[in-house]
Design a protein around this nucleic acid. Structure first.
Length: 360
DNA sequence: AAAACGTGGCC
DNA sequence: TGGCCAAGTTT
Protein backbone atom coordinates (compact mmCIF):
# COMPACT_ATOMS: atom_id res chain seq x y z
CA UNK A 1 0.00 0.00 0.00
CA UNK A 2 1.25 3.45 -0.86
CA UNK A 3 0.55 6.83 0.65
CA UNK A 4 -0.99 9.56 -1.47
CA UNK A 5 -0.62 13.01 -0.04
CA UNK A 6 -3.56 15.05 -1.13
CA UNK A 7 -3.50 18.78 -1.37
CA UNK A 8 -6.66 20.68 -0.68
CA UNK A 9 -7.20 23.22 -3.43
CA UNK A 10 -10.70 24.28 -2.48
CA UNK A 11 -13.40 23.51 0.06
CA UNK A 12 -14.22 20.22 -1.63
CA UNK A 13 -11.41 19.74 -4.10
CA UNK A 14 -8.19 17.80 -3.67
CA UNK A 15 -5.27 17.06 -5.96
CA UNK A 16 -2.70 14.42 -5.18
CA UNK A 17 0.91 15.37 -4.71
CA UNK A 18 1.78 12.85 -7.39
CA UNK A 19 -0.35 14.58 -9.97
CA UNK A 20 1.34 17.89 -9.24
CA UNK A 21 4.79 16.43 -9.78
CA UNK A 22 3.79 14.56 -12.93
CA UNK A 23 2.43 17.75 -14.41
CA UNK A 24 5.57 19.58 -13.43
CA UNK A 25 7.88 17.03 -14.95
CA UNK A 26 5.99 16.78 -18.19
CA UNK A 27 5.68 20.47 -18.72
CA UNK A 28 9.30 21.16 -17.84
CA UNK A 29 10.62 18.60 -20.30
CA UNK A 30 8.27 19.93 -22.97
CA UNK A 31 9.55 23.43 -22.22
CA UNK A 32 13.19 22.48 -22.47
CA UNK A 33 12.59 21.08 -25.93
CA UNK A 34 10.18 23.66 -27.28
CA UNK A 35 10.98 27.00 -25.70
CA UNK A 36 11.65 29.96 -27.88
CA UNK A 37 15.13 31.40 -27.82
CA UNK A 38 14.54 34.85 -26.34
CA UNK A 39 17.22 37.33 -25.31
CA UNK A 40 15.97 37.67 -21.74
CA UNK A 41 16.27 33.92 -21.34
CA UNK A 42 19.98 34.20 -22.00
CA UNK A 43 20.73 36.42 -19.06
CA UNK A 44 20.72 36.11 -15.30
CA UNK A 45 21.06 39.84 -14.73
CA UNK A 46 18.11 40.86 -12.54
CA UNK A 47 18.12 44.33 -14.09
CA UNK A 48 17.80 42.96 -17.61
CA UNK A 49 15.01 40.68 -16.44
CA UNK A 50 13.24 43.62 -14.83
CA UNK A 51 13.38 45.52 -18.12
CA UNK A 52 12.06 42.53 -20.04
CA UNK A 53 9.25 41.80 -17.59
CA UNK A 54 8.18 45.42 -17.60
CA UNK A 55 8.17 45.65 -21.37
CA UNK A 56 6.25 42.39 -21.60
CA UNK A 57 3.38 43.70 -19.50
CA UNK A 58 0.36 43.47 -21.78
CA UNK A 59 2.69 43.44 -24.73
CA UNK A 60 3.57 40.59 -27.04
CA UNK A 61 7.01 39.10 -27.41
CA UNK A 62 7.48 40.07 -31.05
CA UNK A 63 6.74 43.68 -30.26
CA UNK A 64 9.13 43.79 -27.32
CA UNK A 65 12.15 42.22 -29.02
CA UNK A 66 13.64 45.27 -30.79
CA UNK A 67 12.81 47.58 -27.90
CA UNK A 68 14.49 45.31 -25.39
CA UNK A 69 17.75 45.26 -27.34
CA UNK A 70 17.86 48.99 -27.89
CA UNK A 71 16.93 49.85 -24.33
CA UNK A 72 19.49 47.57 -22.76
CA UNK A 73 22.16 48.76 -25.14
CA UNK A 74 21.49 52.38 -24.20
CA UNK A 75 20.97 51.74 -20.48
CA UNK A 76 22.87 48.57 -19.55
CA UNK A 77 22.69 49.10 -15.77
CA UNK A 78 20.49 50.60 -13.10
CA UNK A 79 22.96 53.46 -12.77
CA UNK A 80 22.87 54.16 -16.49
CA UNK A 81 19.11 54.32 -16.42
CA UNK A 82 19.16 56.58 -13.40
CA UNK A 83 21.61 58.97 -15.06
CA UNK A 84 19.76 59.08 -18.38
CA UNK A 85 17.46 61.94 -19.26
CA UNK A 86 13.76 61.30 -19.13
CA UNK A 87 13.59 62.45 -22.73
CA UNK A 88 15.94 59.78 -23.93
CA UNK A 89 14.27 57.03 -21.95
CA UNK A 90 10.91 57.99 -23.37
CA UNK A 91 12.36 58.24 -26.87
CA UNK A 92 13.56 54.64 -26.68
CA UNK A 93 10.14 53.60 -25.42
CA UNK A 94 8.40 55.48 -28.20
CA UNK A 95 5.94 53.25 -30.00
CA UNK A 96 5.80 50.57 -27.32
CA UNK A 97 2.80 51.96 -25.47
CA UNK A 98 1.91 52.25 -21.79
CA UNK A 99 4.47 54.99 -21.36
CA UNK A 100 4.06 55.14 -17.62
CA UNK A 101 6.08 51.94 -17.53
CA UNK A 102 9.12 53.86 -18.73
CA UNK A 103 8.58 56.58 -16.16
CA UNK A 104 8.14 54.06 -13.38
CA UNK A 105 11.26 52.21 -14.45
CA UNK A 106 13.24 55.39 -14.18
CA UNK A 107 11.74 56.25 -10.80
CA UNK A 108 12.58 52.73 -9.62
CA UNK A 109 16.15 53.15 -10.86
CA UNK A 110 16.46 56.31 -8.81
CA UNK A 111 15.20 54.57 -5.69
CA UNK A 112 17.50 51.62 -6.27
CA UNK A 113 20.64 53.68 -6.77
CA UNK A 114 19.88 55.79 -3.72
CA UNK A 115 18.56 53.19 -1.34
CA UNK A 116 19.66 49.77 -2.50
CA UNK A 117 23.16 50.55 -3.71
CA UNK A 118 22.16 50.11 -7.35
CA UNK A 119 20.98 46.57 -6.78
CA UNK A 120 17.62 45.08 -7.58
CA UNK A 121 15.83 44.24 -4.34
CA UNK A 122 15.86 40.54 -3.52
CA UNK A 123 12.73 40.37 -1.39
CA UNK A 124 9.19 40.19 -2.69
CA UNK A 125 7.85 43.03 -0.56
CA UNK A 126 10.74 45.31 -1.43
CA UNK A 127 10.21 44.68 -5.14
CA UNK A 128 6.50 45.17 -4.78
CA UNK A 129 7.12 48.58 -3.21
CA UNK A 130 8.90 49.83 -6.34
CA UNK A 131 6.81 51.84 -8.81
CA UNK A 132 5.58 49.75 -11.74
CA UNK A 133 6.19 46.42 -10.03
CA UNK A 134 2.96 44.62 -9.24
CA UNK A 135 2.29 41.10 -8.03
CA UNK A 136 3.11 39.50 -11.38
CA UNK A 137 6.42 41.27 -11.99
CA UNK A 138 7.55 40.79 -8.39
CA UNK A 139 6.80 37.07 -8.65
CA UNK A 140 8.56 36.81 -11.99
CA UNK A 141 11.68 38.50 -10.64
CA UNK A 142 11.74 36.44 -7.44
CA UNK A 143 11.47 33.21 -9.37
CA UNK A 144 13.38 33.89 -12.58
CA UNK A 145 16.15 36.14 -11.29
CA UNK A 146 16.49 34.85 -7.73
CA UNK A 147 15.26 31.28 -8.00
CA UNK A 148 12.67 31.62 -5.25
CA UNK A 149 9.32 29.79 -5.30
CA UNK A 150 6.92 32.66 -5.99
CA UNK A 151 4.09 32.22 -8.49
CA UNK A 152 3.99 34.59 -11.47
CA UNK A 153 0.36 34.64 -12.50
CA UNK A 154 -0.04 36.44 -15.76
CA UNK A 155 -2.90 36.00 -18.20
CA UNK A 156 -1.28 32.90 -19.67
CA UNK A 157 -0.68 31.14 -16.38
CA UNK A 158 -4.21 31.96 -15.22
CA UNK A 159 -5.73 30.54 -18.37
CA UNK A 160 -3.65 27.36 -18.28
CA UNK A 161 -4.36 26.66 -14.61
CA UNK A 162 -8.02 27.47 -15.03
CA UNK A 163 -8.37 24.93 -17.78
CA UNK A 164 -6.02 22.34 -16.35
CA UNK A 165 -7.59 22.14 -12.88
CA UNK A 166 -10.96 23.64 -13.58
CA UNK A 167 -10.00 26.25 -11.02
CA UNK A 168 -12.88 28.46 -10.04
CA UNK A 169 -11.78 31.47 -8.06
CA UNK A 170 -8.76 33.55 -7.34
CA UNK A 171 -8.03 31.76 -4.10
CA UNK A 172 -8.03 28.33 -5.67
CA UNK A 173 -5.80 29.56 -8.45
CA UNK A 174 -3.25 30.82 -5.94
CA UNK A 175 -3.28 27.61 -3.93
CA UNK A 176 -2.59 25.58 -7.05
CA UNK A 177 0.04 27.98 -8.35
CA UNK A 178 1.89 28.04 -5.02
CA UNK A 179 2.00 24.26 -4.84
CA UNK A 180 3.25 23.89 -8.36
CA UNK A 181 5.98 26.48 -8.09
CA UNK A 182 7.45 24.84 -4.98
CA UNK A 183 10.08 22.93 -6.92
CA UNK A 184 13.77 22.93 -7.74
CA UNK A 185 13.69 25.61 -10.44
CA UNK A 186 10.73 27.90 -9.85
CA UNK A 187 11.79 30.38 -12.52
CA UNK A 188 11.95 27.69 -15.13
CA UNK A 189 8.57 26.37 -14.05
CA UNK A 190 6.91 29.78 -14.24
CA UNK A 191 8.30 30.37 -17.70
CA UNK A 192 7.22 26.94 -18.84
CA UNK A 193 3.68 27.64 -17.69
CA UNK A 194 3.58 30.94 -19.52
CA UNK A 195 5.19 29.47 -22.62
CA UNK A 196 2.52 26.80 -22.80
CA UNK A 197 -0.16 29.48 -22.52
CA UNK A 198 1.50 31.63 -25.15
CA UNK A 199 2.04 28.93 -27.75
CA UNK A 200 -0.33 25.99 -27.13
CA UNK A 201 -2.99 26.78 -24.56
CA UNK A 202 -3.86 30.04 -26.29
CA UNK A 203 -7.05 31.93 -25.59
CA UNK A 204 -8.81 31.14 -28.83
CA UNK A 205 -8.58 27.84 -30.67
CA UNK A 206 -6.08 26.19 -28.33
CA UNK A 207 -3.85 23.57 -29.97
CA UNK A 208 -4.80 20.76 -27.59
CA UNK A 209 -3.50 17.91 -29.77
CA UNK A 210 0.00 19.31 -29.24
CA UNK A 211 -0.39 19.82 -25.51
CA UNK A 212 1.88 17.81 -23.22
CA UNK A 213 -0.64 18.16 -20.39
CA UNK A 214 -3.69 17.04 -22.30
CA UNK A 215 -4.11 13.85 -20.33
CA UNK A 216 -4.20 15.82 -17.06
CA UNK A 217 -6.47 18.56 -18.29
CA UNK A 218 -9.88 19.03 -16.71
CA UNK A 219 -11.18 21.09 -19.62
CA UNK A 220 -10.04 18.49 -22.14
CA UNK A 221 -11.35 15.57 -20.07
CA UNK A 222 -14.79 17.02 -19.55
CA UNK A 223 -15.01 18.33 -23.09
CA UNK A 224 -15.73 21.67 -21.57
CA UNK A 225 -15.76 24.36 -24.16
CA UNK A 226 -12.18 25.53 -24.38
CA UNK A 227 -13.12 28.65 -26.13
CA UNK A 228 -15.14 29.77 -23.18
CA UNK A 229 -13.64 32.92 -21.88
CA UNK A 230 -12.16 32.67 -18.41
CA UNK A 231 -12.66 36.35 -17.79
CA UNK A 232 -15.38 38.87 -18.22
CA UNK A 233 -14.78 40.82 -21.39
CA UNK A 234 -14.33 44.52 -21.27
CA UNK A 235 -16.99 46.72 -22.74
CA UNK A 236 -15.95 48.44 -25.93
CA UNK A 237 -15.55 52.15 -25.79
CA UNK A 238 -17.04 54.80 -27.97
CA UNK A 239 -15.09 55.45 -31.14
CA UNK A 240 -13.33 58.74 -31.60
CA UNK A 241 -12.08 60.42 -34.72
CA UNK A 242 -8.58 61.79 -34.86
CA UNK A 243 -7.91 64.14 -37.67
CA UNK A 244 -4.21 64.42 -38.11
CA UNK A 245 -2.00 66.93 -39.79
CA UNK A 246 1.68 66.81 -40.52
CA UNK A 247 3.11 70.10 -41.54
CA UNK A 248 6.42 70.34 -43.28
CA UNK A 249 8.42 73.44 -43.78
CA UNK A 250 11.26 72.41 -45.96
CA UNK A 251 12.66 69.53 -43.95
CA UNK A 252 10.92 70.30 -40.71
CA UNK A 253 7.88 68.97 -38.92
CA UNK A 254 5.75 70.87 -36.49
CA UNK A 255 5.64 69.14 -33.13
CA UNK A 256 4.30 69.84 -29.70
CA UNK A 257 4.98 68.16 -26.43
CA UNK A 258 1.95 66.79 -24.64
CA UNK A 259 1.39 67.75 -21.02
CA UNK A 260 2.91 65.24 -18.59
CA UNK A 261 -0.35 64.44 -16.86
CA UNK A 262 -2.39 63.90 -20.02
CA UNK A 263 -2.89 60.80 -22.11
CA UNK A 264 0.43 59.95 -23.77
CA UNK A 265 1.97 62.39 -21.33
CA UNK A 266 5.40 63.74 -22.23
CA UNK A 267 5.29 62.43 -25.77
CA UNK A 268 5.54 64.67 -28.80
CA UNK A 269 2.77 64.86 -31.32
CA UNK A 270 1.95 66.32 -34.70
CA UNK A 271 -0.98 68.72 -34.88
CA UNK A 272 -4.44 67.24 -34.80
CA UNK A 273 -6.61 65.66 -32.16
CA UNK A 274 -10.07 64.46 -31.36
CA UNK A 275 -13.05 65.46 -33.30
CA UNK A 276 -16.22 66.06 -31.35
CA UNK A 277 -19.33 64.39 -32.56
CA UNK A 278 -20.90 66.42 -35.36
CA UNK A 279 -17.95 68.76 -35.62
CA UNK A 280 -16.50 69.37 -39.06
CA UNK A 281 -12.93 68.36 -39.75
CA UNK A 282 -11.83 71.90 -40.50
CA UNK A 283 -13.44 73.17 -37.34
CA UNK A 284 -11.73 70.48 -35.28
CA UNK A 285 -8.34 71.20 -36.81
CA UNK A 286 -8.72 74.91 -36.30
CA UNK A 287 -9.77 74.37 -32.72
CA UNK A 288 -6.70 72.27 -32.00
CA UNK A 289 -4.27 74.40 -33.92
CA UNK A 290 -5.42 77.75 -32.58
CA UNK A 291 -4.12 80.39 -34.93
CA UNK A 292 -2.98 78.07 -37.70
CA UNK A 293 -6.11 78.36 -39.78
CA UNK A 294 -4.19 79.03 -42.98
CA UNK A 295 -2.35 75.77 -42.73
CA UNK A 296 -5.56 73.95 -42.14
CA UNK A 297 -7.09 75.42 -45.25
CA UNK A 298 -4.08 74.58 -47.39
CA UNK A 299 -3.75 71.00 -46.21
CA UNK A 300 -4.79 68.06 -48.26
CA UNK A 301 -5.46 64.44 -47.52
CA UNK A 302 -2.49 62.13 -47.96
CA UNK A 303 -3.96 58.90 -46.67
CA UNK A 304 -5.27 57.19 -43.62
CA UNK A 305 -3.73 55.23 -40.79
CA UNK A 306 -5.46 52.74 -38.59
CA UNK A 307 -4.81 53.27 -34.94
CA UNK A 308 -6.11 52.62 -31.48
CA UNK A 309 -5.73 54.32 -28.16
CA UNK A 310 -6.85 52.11 -25.33
CA UNK A 311 -9.65 50.18 -26.93
CA UNK A 312 -10.78 53.01 -29.14
CA UNK A 313 -10.49 52.18 -32.79
CA UNK A 314 -9.47 55.13 -34.87
CA UNK A 315 -9.26 55.63 -38.57
CA UNK A 316 -7.12 58.70 -38.68
CA UNK A 317 -6.86 60.75 -41.84
CA UNK A 318 -3.40 62.17 -42.44
CA UNK A 319 -2.98 65.60 -43.94
CA UNK A 320 0.00 67.31 -45.43
CA UNK A 321 0.14 71.08 -45.49
CA UNK A 322 2.26 73.16 -47.86
CA UNK A 323 3.04 76.79 -47.36
CA UNK A 324 4.79 77.92 -50.54
CA UNK A 325 6.36 81.27 -49.80
CA UNK A 326 4.26 81.74 -46.76
CA UNK A 327 5.63 82.30 -43.30
CA UNK A 328 4.03 80.26 -40.57
CA UNK A 329 3.95 81.45 -37.00
CA UNK A 330 2.88 78.60 -34.78
CA UNK A 331 1.45 79.40 -31.40
CA UNK A 332 3.25 78.79 -28.11
CA UNK A 333 4.36 75.24 -27.47
CA UNK A 334 4.93 74.31 -31.10
CA UNK A 335 8.37 73.58 -32.39
CA UNK A 336 9.82 72.99 -35.84
CA UNK A 337 11.81 69.80 -35.72
CA UNK A 338 14.14 68.76 -38.53
CA UNK A 339 13.24 65.36 -39.88
CA UNK A 340 16.85 64.31 -39.36
CA UNK A 341 16.66 64.74 -35.60
CA UNK A 342 13.27 63.17 -35.13
CA UNK A 343 14.89 60.28 -33.37
CA UNK A 344 15.49 62.35 -30.29
CA UNK A 345 11.82 63.13 -29.87
CA UNK A 346 9.62 60.50 -28.26
CA UNK A 347 6.59 60.22 -30.48
CA UNK A 348 3.44 58.21 -30.10
CA UNK A 349 2.74 55.60 -32.74
CA UNK A 350 0.02 57.69 -34.31
CA UNK A 351 2.44 60.52 -35.00
CA UNK A 352 5.15 58.17 -36.16
CA UNK A 353 2.80 56.54 -38.64
CA UNK A 354 1.53 59.83 -39.93
CA UNK A 355 5.00 61.20 -40.57
CA UNK A 356 6.04 57.99 -42.28
CA UNK A 357 3.00 58.16 -44.51
CA UNK A 358 3.70 61.75 -45.50
CA UNK A 359 7.34 61.04 -46.29
CA UNK A 360 6.40 58.80 -49.18
C1' DA B 1 -12.73 48.43 -7.39
C1' DA B 2 -13.78 49.95 -11.90
C1' DA B 3 -11.39 52.43 -15.26
C1' DA B 4 -7.53 54.11 -17.51
C1' DC B 5 -3.49 53.18 -19.79
C1' DG B 6 -1.03 51.98 -26.03
C1' DT B 7 -0.27 49.13 -29.50
C1' DG B 8 -0.27 45.18 -32.70
C1' DG B 9 -2.20 40.90 -34.31
C1' DC B 10 -5.69 37.71 -35.49
C1' DC B 11 -10.11 36.10 -37.57
C1' DT C 1 -14.91 45.04 -39.95
C1' DG C 2 -15.41 44.85 -34.88
C1' DG C 3 -14.23 42.24 -31.03
C1' DC C 4 -10.94 39.91 -28.45
C1' DC C 5 -6.46 39.25 -26.52
C1' DA C 6 -1.59 39.96 -24.99
C1' DA C 7 4.58 38.02 -19.77
C1' DG C 8 -0.30 44.01 -15.68
C1' DT C 9 -0.14 48.24 -12.73
C1' DT C 10 -2.06 52.19 -10.81
C1' DT C 11 -5.48 55.18 -8.85
Amino acid sequence: MSFEFNVRISYTGFVSQTKFSRIRNRLISWYLKNRRDLPWRRTRDPYAILIAETMLQQTQVQTVLPYYRRFLHAFPTVEALDRASKEKVLALWSGLGYYRRAENLKRAARIMTRGHGGKIAREFDALRALPGIGPYTAGALMSIAFNRPYPALDGNARRVLTRLFGAKGEKELHTIASRLVACARPGQWNQALMELGATICVAQDPRCPLCPLRRFCAAWGSRRSLRKKPFVTKPSVEKVQWPLVVIQKKQKVLLRRRPAAALLGGLWEVPGGERKKGESLTAALTRHLNGLGDIVNDSHLVGEVRHSITHRRIRAPVFLAFQPGKEIHPGPGWRWVPLSSLRRYPLSSLSLKAIKLVQR
